[in-house]
């Protein structure tokens, strides 16, 4: 009897303090969901009522127009070229910029602060909106797509690369400073050897993302296979849309694989 009384308190878990924070977050979440659902007129029953409309399109996509394949090869190649050029230009501009915003290389907080601010602003604008803007500026065609991808890459690679530069081993920098090296020599002999493999990796990563992004840029007129995608969607030719989706899928898979293997060899 006494034993049981002793053991009883240990059978239960220690009581947790009441989590006010959790309660508030949960209430906020539920309020957010209810507000968003009202704001966007979410009507799930209506979606299921009209689900046959969705399935109709899906059915058409299930019987692709294979004869259209030969027409999409040329724009597909243009898309890949856009991605290569955009990634190359963007990454080449991003590399020196990343050194300028790294606080272990440029000690002036004011300079790095302003340059980082610009980089962050560039990163906030979605790619397709950028493309729509550049189509308005330079005209319909792949050039608008290339500029968009270059700016998009600049934002992405710039951020990843300066974070890599800021986490390098400071030892070689100190050693070179102690032996009287100037800024350029420090970057060349202490920083670049440590980060060059990161740069290659980020370049290939950006390329993978850009191939995906470039396939829809044509929707707003920025060249590549997206132009054809937009036409087919406008004509409700979902059999052609599905061919393009399949071709894009195949290309993305191949490019991801090639990029992965290249990265493995180069790292």
């Amino acid at each position: 009897m006494a034993d049981r009384k002793m053991a009883a308190p240990q059978m239960t878990l220690p009581k947790k303090p009441f989590g006010w924070e959790k309660l508030i977050v949960t209430i906020l979440m539920i309020a957010g969901i209810l507000w968003s659902a009202g704001e966007t007129n979410v009507d799930i029953p209506m979606f299921f009522a009209n689900f046959d409309q969705f399935m109709k399109i899906f059915d058409q996509m299930m019987s692709p127009d294979w004869s259209y394949t030969s027409y999409v090869i040329a724009p597909l190649i243009e898309t890949i070229k856009m991605a290569v050029i955009g990634t190359t230009i963007g990454a080449l501009v991003a590399a020196p910029y990343a050194f300028l915003v790294s606080r272990n290389i440029i000690q002036n907080r004011f300079v790095t602060g302003i340059l980082r601010f610009i980089l962050n602003i560039i990163r906030t604008i979605p790619d397709l909106l950028l493309a729509a803007l550049f189509v308005a500026v330079v005209g319909i065609g792949p050039v608008a797509g290339i500029i968009t991808l270059a700016i998009f890459t600049f934002g992405m690679v710039g951020k990843l690369f300066y974070e890599a530069v800021e986490t390098i081993d400071e030892g070689p920098i100190e050693a070179l400073t102690a032996s009287g090296a100037n800024k350029w020599e420090i970057v060349r002999y202490a920083v670049i050897p440590q980060v060059s493999s990161y740069f290659v990796s980020y370049f290939l990563y950006a390329f993978e993302i850009n191939v995906r992004a470039s396939t829809v840029l044509g929707y707003v007129g920025a060249g590549g296979i997206g132009v054809f995608l937009q036409q087919a969607l406008g004509q409700f030719r979902y059999d052609r849309v599905s061919i393009m989706v399949l071709v894009i899928f195949a290309v993305v898979l191949v490019i991801d694989y090639v990029s992965l293997k290249t990265r493995e060899v180069l790292m």
């Binding site: 704001e39 966007t40 007129n41 979410v42 009507d43 209506m46 979606f47 009209n50 689900f51 409309q53 969705f54 109709k56 399109i57 899906f58 397709l128 995906r212 396939t215 829809v216 929707y219 995608l229 969607l233 849309v241 989706v245 894009i248 899928f249 993305v252």
Partner: peptide
């Protein structure tokens, strides 16, 4: 890999051009 814009257009077919299509 399925382009989000194509998906949005498919949902617009089902529920009309509204924010709900964007949500889906």
């Amino acid at each position: 890999t399925f382009p989000e814009i194509v998906l949005a257009l498919m949902f617009i077919k089902a529920v009309g051009p509204s924010a709900f299509a964007g949500v889906l």
